[in-house]
Amino acid sequence: MAKTIFYSFHYQRDVHRVQLVRNINALEAQPLLNAQEWEQVRQSGDKAIEKWIHDQMTYKKAVIVLIGKETASRPWVTYEIEKAWAAKKPLLGVRIHGLSSMGGVDSAGPDPFARTDAAGSAPIFDPTVTDWSGKIDSQATYNKLRANLEAWSSQGATKRPW
């Protein structure tokens, strides 16, 4: 099981959902920067962001992309996917749009692996649970994620050496 992981996600849109994932405490991940800390790194430029990603990802056993509505369009998420793939780290996605953020859920976003070399290789797990009317049940979704996250973390795909 990949107990130490790097979470890749769209900070601005999904940070509250990511905090819910971290609160499960099933896996050890990089520190979650607050908005001010992230802004300091971001304002230092692309090289500073690359260094932060490198430093945080180096000793992690796997990379989990937490997939929200806009995750696939984020350039730093793409960078993190490509970096993990090149480093042959197990890579997988977990959909988080069904978790509540500020009282609301979101719609599913596209596959963030589709535009990378990992396309078609990295599994995506979806804990989203709907009620009888088709409405997302965020509490049931959280419970399903909590029950499965640790097991899913060991099912990432790695780049083949050939």
Results as ranks from 00 to 15, higher is better:
residue 93 G to S: 10
residue 30 Q to I: 01
residue 100 S to N: 14
residue 131 D to P: 03
residue 82 E to Y: 03
residue 1 M to W: 08
residue 66 L to T: 04
residue 19 Q to V: 07
residue 149 L to V: 02
residue 19 Q to C: 03
residue 128 T to F: 14
residue 67 I to P: 03
residue 135 K to H: 14
residue 57 M to E: 03
residue 14 D to C: 08
residue 160 R to E: 08
residue 140 A to G: 04
residue 85 W to L: 02
residue 120 G to E: 12
residue 104 G to N: 15
residue 22 R to F: 06
residue 10 H to E: 12
residue 142 Y to F: 11
residue 118 A to W: 02
residue 100 S to A: 15
residue 71 T to M: 12
residue 23 N to M: 10
residue 50 E to P: 01
residue 98 G to W: 03
residue 62 A to D: 04
residue 22 R to P: 01
residue 44 S to K: 14
residue 44 S to Q: 14
residue 137 D to R: 09
residue 155 Q to L: 12
residue 37 E to D: 11
residue 11 Y to S: 05
residue 42 R to G: 06
residue 26 A to I: 00
residue 46 D to W: 15
residue 134 G to N: 04
residue 15 V to N: 13
residue 125 F to W: 13
residue 107 S to D: 09
residue 115 R to Q: 05
residue 5 I to F: 08
residue 121 S to Q: 14
residue 43 Q to F: 10
residue 82 E to V: 01
residue 103 G to A: 06
residue 76 W to L: 12
residue 4 T to F: 10
residue 78 T to P: 00
residue 97 H to R: 05
residue 75 P to A: 10
residue 161 P to K: 07
residue 95 R to E: 15
residue 46 D to V: 15
residue 144 K to G: 00
residue 26 A to F: 01
residue 30 Q to A: 10
residue 112 P to H: 02
residue 76 W to E: 04
residue 88 K to E: 09
residue 18 V to C: 05
residue 97 H to L: 02
residue 15 V to E: 15
residue 129 V to I: 13
residue 106 D to K: 05
residue 125 F to A: 08
residue 127 P to I: 02
residue 37 E to M: 06
residue 59 Y to W: 15
residue 135 K to W: 11
